[in-house]
């Protein structure tokens, strides 16, 4: 009785552990900044796309695996972005790129927002070469949101604002 109790775990344990270790080895090495945004995304959510002061950008293609929706609310008095929300369906880098770009957008004028470049996002998140496309998608989302807002508000000025 005592012997079987001792021998059974010994026989089973190594066989059980070995394959688990083997599957853990090929770890994807996302940069910690990507993981931070992925695990704790900033400004996730959505706004009413019918609001006059909201611009909505939607880019990407479901078939390609990445879809990004980015919304900005522009304060009528200051001309600055007062609220930003995003939802992204895609890889960790795409989620992190859109999360980071929402942080960048807060308080910016439309003209400042339009100057955000994919290189800035890629640099901050230390994206590897194959993931640079994700940062480009985030830049596209910003431009798309601005274009949508300007379409709704033809009178909106692309003023550089007081912060420049």
């Amino acid at each position: 009785m005592f012997r079987t109790l001792l021998t059974v775990p010994r026989a089973v344990a190594p066989r059980f552990v070995a394959p688990r270790v083997a599957t853990i080895v090929p770890v994807r090495n996302y940069h910690e900044k990507v993981l931070d945004h992925y695990n704790n995304p900033r400004n996730v959510g959505s706004m009413n796309k019918n609001d006059q002061d909201v611009g909505t950008g939607l880019v990407g293609a479901p078939a390609c695996g990445d879809v990004m929706k980015l919304q900005i609310r522009v304060d009528e008095k200051t001309g600055k972005i007062s609220d930003v929300k995003f939802k992204t369906f895609g890889c960790g880098s795409a989620i992190a790129s859109s999360s980071y770009v929402t942080e960048l957008l807060y308080g910016k004028t439309l003209a400042e927002a339009a100057m955000i470049k994919n290189t800035q996002i890629a640099k901050e998140l230390c994206l590897p070469p194959v993931k640079l496309h994700c940062s480009m998608l985030a830049e596209d989302a910003v431009k798309s949101a601005i274009a949508n807002f300007k379409g709704k508000n033809p009178g909106a000025k692309m003023t550089m604002g007081a912060s420049l």
């Binding site: 990407g60 989302a141 431009k143």
Partner: peptide, 9 residues
Amino acid sequence: QPPARAFFA
């Protein structure tokens, strides 16, 4: 919604 064509990546 179908995305705006101009910025559809």
